[in-house]
Amino acid sequence: RKEMTAACTPRRRIINLTSVLSLQEEINEQGHEVLREMLHNHSFVGCVNPQWALAQHQTKLYLLNTTKLSEELFYQILIYDFANFGVLRLSEPAPLFDLAMLALDSPESGWTEEDGPKEGLAEYIVEFLKKKAEMLADYFSLEIDEEGNLIGLPLLIDNYVPPLEGLPIFILRLATEVNWDEEKECFESLSKECAMFYSIRKQYISEESTLSGQQSEVPGSIPNSWKWTVEHIVYKALRSHILPPKHFTEDGNILQLANLPDLYKVFERC
């Protein structure tokens, strides 16, 4: 597991931080080997919608929660590849102030007048994250320049770009939802926020969305749709870069829909 690298990086740093090793061990302890084997050997059937997909393993048909699986995938990559990410360069710098204002204007932020003026909160978020810029760049390849612009994001899987519609809320939550006081809790909560931002979430995906850094293989055609990215990038990574937690067998994120021999018997009677 320590050699797990989802995106190509030129050289690998050895990380011996106790906090990170502890988080890696927790993933191992909570892992479910049968689910790992199923995901490793599954045959992708198709997307139901951005949140759900169908896959077959041996004779069984499964309904998989793409949102939760991708979130767990990105969390584990962030923990196992800690401080070893490439950088996704933004085509132009994104001012943190503008991103924070967009987030505060969104109902998702939960902002009320009692929280104070949005401009003041946005300025605080910019200054707060600028103070964390060195650590964010060093460990997470999340790059913020001296003017308070976001200029780079971590490359977690080759050819995958997170849904940038979720970027404003991500920046807001970096400042408000991460435990910045304790090292282990900081790395864990920061990785979880980043994983949620990178995950496939239906509120940020339309039929026209593209999450891939590449064009489709047909010359002159439109960019790959999110469905292509889910199948050929995300579920491909799920084959080798995730140890599913045991609770996925109990919380409805992986559901067995049918045993195909039983279905064949039904059709034979028709």
Rank of each mutant, 00 (worst) to 15 (best):
R1Y: 10
E3N: 11
M4P: 06
M4H: 06
M4T: 07
A6M: 05
A6D: 05
A7E: 11
C8G: 13
C8A: 10
C8F: 07
P10E: 14
P10C: 08
R11I: 10
R12Q: 13
R12L: 14
R13I: 08
R13W: 10
I15H: 11
N16P: 10
L17S: 07
L17M: 06
T18V: 06
S19F: 02
S19N: 05
L21E: 07
S22Y: 11
L23Y: 01
L23T: 02
L23E: 00
Q24D: 02
E25V: 10
E26I: 06
I27G: 01
I27S: 04
G31V: 07
E33S: 12
E33H: 11
V34C: 12
L35Q: 04
R36W: 08
E37R: 07
E37I: 06
E37C: 11
M38S: 02
L39N: 02
L39G: 01
N41W: 06
N41C: 10
H42Y: 03
H42A: 12
F44C: 00
F44T: 02
V45Y: 06
C47D: 02
V48L: 08
N49F: 02
N49A: 08
P50G: 07
P50I: 11
P50R: 04
P50S: 14
W52Y: 12
A53L: 01
A53H: 00
A53C: 07
L54N: 00
A55Y: 01
A55K: 00
K60T: 11
K60Q: 10
L61Q: 04
L63Q: 02
T67C: 04
K68M: 10
L69R: 00
L69S: 02
E71L: 05
E72A: 13
Y75W: 04
Y75K: 09
I77T: 06
I79Q: 02
Y80H: 13
A83T: 04
A83E: 03
G86Q: 12
V87S: 15
V87Y: 12
R89D: 13
L90P: 05
S91W: 08
S91D: 14
P93K: 07
F97I: 10
L99R: 01
L99D: 00
A100Q: 00
M101Q: 08
A103W: 03
A103Q: 02
L104F: 12
L104Y: 13
E108I: 11
G110D: 14
W111K: 07
T112M: 12
E114H: 11
G116T: 06
G116M: 09
G116W: 07
G120L: 09
L121G: 07
E123D: 11
E123P: 04
I125A: 07
I125M: 06
V126D: 07
F128A: 13
F128P: 03
E134T: 08
M135V: 06
L136A: 01
D138M: 06
Y139E: 01
L142M: 09
L142Q: 01
E143S: 10
I144H: 00
I144N: 01
I144T: 03
I144D: 02
D145S: 07
G148C: 10
L150T: 02
L153W: 01
P154S: 02
P154R: 00
L155S: 10
L155A: 09
I157A: 03
D158R: 13
D158Q: 14
D158K: 12
N159S: 14
N159W: 05
V161H: 13
P162A: 03
L164A: 07
E165F: 05
E165M: 09
P168S: 09
I171E: 02
L174I: 12
L174S: 02
A175C: 11
A175K: 06
A175V: 14
E177R: 06
E183H: 03
K184W: 04
K184I: 07
E185F: 08
F187V: 07
E188W: 09
L190T: 05
L190D: 01
S191H: 02
S191Q: 02
S191Y: 01
K192Q: 14
E193Q: 07
M196K: 12
F197S: 00
Y198T: 00
S199A: 09
S199I: 03
S199W: 00
R201K: 08
Y204V: 04
I205K: 03
I205C: 11
S206N: 13
L211G: 13
L211E: 14
S212K: 10
S212D: 12
Q215C: 11
Q215V: 15
S216H: 09
S216D: 15
E217I: 11
E217V: 08
V218W: 09
I222A: 14
S225M: 07
W226I: 03
K227P: 05
K227V: 05
W228Q: 08
W228V: 06
T229D: 10
T229K: 05
T229A: 11
V230R: 00
E231M: 01
I233Q: 11
K236C: 06
K236L: 03
R239N: 01
R239A: 06
R239P: 00
S240Y: 09
L243Q: 13
L243K: 12
K246H: 14
F248V: 03
T249D: 15
T249R: 12
D251P: 04
D251G: 07
D251R: 06
D251Q: 10
G252F: 04
N253H: 15
I254F: 07
L255T: 13
L255D: 03
N259M: 06
L260N: 10
L260E: 09
P261A: 12
Y264I: 10
Y264G: 15
K265G: 15
V266C: 15
V266S: 15
F267C: 15
E268V: 05
C270A: 14
